Structures are given as C-alpha cells and as structure tokens.
Simulated scan of single mutants.
Amino acid sequence: MTSPALQPDPGSLALSRKEDFKAFVDAPRRSRPEALDRNTLRALTAPERAAYDRSRRQWHANLGPIRTPQLAHLHEDLWDIVDSNLQDGDQAKGAVAVDAFPGLGKTTAVLAFAREFHRREIAEHGPFTAQGHERWPVCRVGLTGNTGMKDLNRAMLEFFGHPGRQTSTATQLGLQALDCVLSCEVRLLILDDLHFLKWRRTSGIEVSNHLKWIANEFPVTLLKVGVGLADKGLFSEGEALGETVLAQTGRRTTRLDMPPFTIDTEKGRRQWRQLLLALEQRIVLTDAYPGMLADDLSDYLFTRSTGHIGSLMTLVNRGCQRAQRTGIERLTRDLLDQVRNDEAAEQARRELEYAFRAGKATSRPHGARTPT
C-alpha cells in the first residue's frame, strides 16, 4: 500500500496517462473539514489555522460532483449503453456522444461515470487479465484542434506509456493501440474535446473513418465528449462534401446531452433548490447557516450562473475563498458582487437581472422561505 506521503497530488494529475487515471479512480473520498465556531477559530495557533484554512481552500475548490438530475439521467443512459455492448467480437458496438454547451458539467459527469465503471470492472474481474496483463477498463484521450489519425493513435499509446509511440508510422501506431486495448481488456474509450476536430476538413474525415475502424475492430464502447457535435456534422446524413462519409457515425452513435437548470416550471425550480441545498451542506464557513444559498441567494445565484452548473460552482468556490480570506465567513450578495465569474455568465446575466427585478421570474418553488 502506498503511504499517504507518496500519494500523487490530486491537483497535478493528467488523466490522459494511466497511472494518473488510476490515482483519480482510487483516490479516497475527500474528508469534509470540521466547521468551527468563531471562538474555536480564534483559539487555533498560527500553524493550526494555516493548516485548517488550507484544508478548506482545497475542499471548496473540489465541491463536486453533485448528483444532479442531469448527471443521474446521463449515468443511467450510459449504464444502459455500456452494459448492452456485450456483443461478440464480430459485431460493432454502439457509440455515445455527450454533446452539450460548455459549463454544464459534461466532462465532470463522464469522468464520474468512468470512475464507477472502472471500479466495477476491477471488482468483478480483478486487476489483472487471464494473460497476466494489467486490466485497464477505461482509456481516456483528450483531442486537440490539430488531431489527425496518427495523433489519435499516439495519444492512445501515450495513455499506456507504450515505448513505440514516438517512432512508429500511423498504421503501426493503430495496431499497437489495438494490441494495448486487447491486452489490457479496455471496455470504454473516452475521447474528450471532440469538437476541436475540423470535421469537414481532410484530417476530420480521416479521424472519422479511423473512429469507424476502432468501432469495428476494438471491443470497446466509444464515448465521445464535445460541444456542438451535431452542428459540426458528426451525425449528418446529408450529401454535401464529407457528410456522407460521416453518416455511418450518426447511425451508430447515441447522442446524450446535459441541459442547464431552468426555472420556468415548478419542477425546474424544485431541482434548482435541491442543488443549492446540496451545496449548502458542503460549504465550510464559520457563519454559514441553513438557507444561505437556497433561500437568501437563490435568484441571485441563478442570475449569476444562468442555470449552468459550471458557472455556479465557479462562483460559489471563489466566493468561499474570498469569504474565508477576508474573515466574513459567509456568502452574501455584497461579497459575491465582488467576485468575478466566467465571461459567458457575466454577459448573459443582464437580461435575467431585469426579469427578476420586474417580478417576471423567480427561482424559488412554492412554499420556499422569502429571502431576508
């Protein structure tokens, strides 16, 4: 067993390499720091206070993932697809594309699923294959705007640390990647940031054809993650140049999404409130109180995040850091007004602010306490 001192720093992991992915999968659940009252906080020695504040900084920077309805639905769909892909080797397996706007938590949700799947496979089949190879149920590859067929093959080999990844031809790299997948019994191949590809250019068509080869030859479920994949032609059936080449991908791929939170229905408002209540329970500030987010800041937080969980988590994380650093030790509108959020959320908040001020919108369900 690795001693705690030798455990890799979770903030320094590169999930495109198997050792770091394993550290991510095997990492124990973070321990929530104890919430101290003002007197106990003042009684801490300088080293104790520094250690306590450092633990809170790390905790607030890693509040997720939260099992929202969107994450739960995505995971159920992924389990359906992955568990149904037990066809024999002569049959191509169905692929998945998680296609959603930025800031909706799709990569976080996919990685949470990958961790659960990896753990399940290891628990059921053991850490080694029958041939004595390490078992790697999941392989994750991040794509870039310049990714071609050779780059994709090399990225898969980079995950396994294969010695031939720098010197082989594209064909050799593909066969070596296939050998790694077969030897390590990979069952889930995640391709993240697929939108970086230029699908209608030559390299995009080559990679699309290569993905079909992977789907035919590799006994894996392809899980593609990206933004605007439908608009880029991943599922196209048209006759324009390149679209017919991509059409088969659409027939074999199930599109899943991660919608934002909405407040135009009572169900949506209840889901938003449940998210804020879950967040409240994770915040470790001395003067935090029940209803701090869900009652007193509900409309404000929806305005600042526009229902995008990524923007909400960024704002709450940064707000907690400022509240701790300044000694305010709670989240208030005045404090959060000083915290900058991502540019997309800041640009979109103006129209929502008008709707809330005019009484045309509310994020609070019926029966929720009126904010103080």
Rank of each mutant, 00 (worst) to 15 (best):
E76F: 01
T171K: 03
Y52L: 01
L223H: 05
E343H: 12
A5Q: 15
A14M: 14
A215T: 12
A43V: 02
E329W: 04
Y354I: 15
P137F: 05
F196K: 15
W199D: 10
D264Q: 09
Q58A: 10
T254R: 15
F24E: 09
V316G: 02
R17F: 14
V316E: 01
D88E: 14
E237D: 15
Y289M: 04
G64M: 06
L15P: 12
T332A: 04
G174T: 00
M313V: 04
L63D: 05
K212N: 13
I309Y: 02
V220P: 07
L36T: 01
E121A: 03
Q347S: 12
Q338C: 09
H308L: 09
A5L: 15
P259L: 06
N85V: 05
N341A: 07
A230S: 13
C320R: 00
D295M: 06
Q324F: 01
Q70P: 03
R154Y: 01
A368C: 12
G105W: 02
P33G: 03
M313C: 03
E185F: 03
L293E: 01
Q87V: 14
D264M: 04
T254S: 14
H75C: 07
S16I: 11
A114H: 10
E243F: 06
D264C: 08
D192Y: 06
T306G: 08
W79F: 06
L41V: 00
T326I: 07
A155L: 02
V96Q: 08
G250K: 07
A123R: 09
G310H: 00
D20K: 07
V138S: 06
T253Y: 12
R200F: 12
M313L: 09
Y300I: 04
R325G: 13
A23W: 09
V181I: 10
S298A: 14
R282Q: 05
L189P: 06
D257W: 04
L71P: 09
A109W: 07
F235K: 12
P127A: 06
H73Y: 06
G11C: 08
S31I: 14
H133C: 14
A43G: 11
T202C: 12
I328E: 15
R201H: 11
A5E: 15
R38D: 11
G103C: 03
Q7L: 15
L191F: 12
T372K: 14
P260M: 02
I66L: 13
Y354V: 15
L86F: 13
A215R: 15
V316D: 01
R255P: 00
L256F: 04
H195Y: 01
A95G: 11
Y52G: 03
L78I: 04
R357P: 13
L335P: 00
A247H: 10
T372S: 15
E124M: 09
A51Q: 06
D295C: 10
D342T: 07
P10H: 07
R165Q: 08
L335T: 00
L152P: 02
W199G: 12
D90F: 11
D192P: 08
R349H: 09
A348S: 05
T169S: 05
V82R: 10
R120Q: 10
G250D: 09
E280A: 02
A155H: 07
F235V: 09
I122S: 00
G310P: 01
E329D: 10
H118S: 09
R255I: 02
K224D: 10
A72F: 02
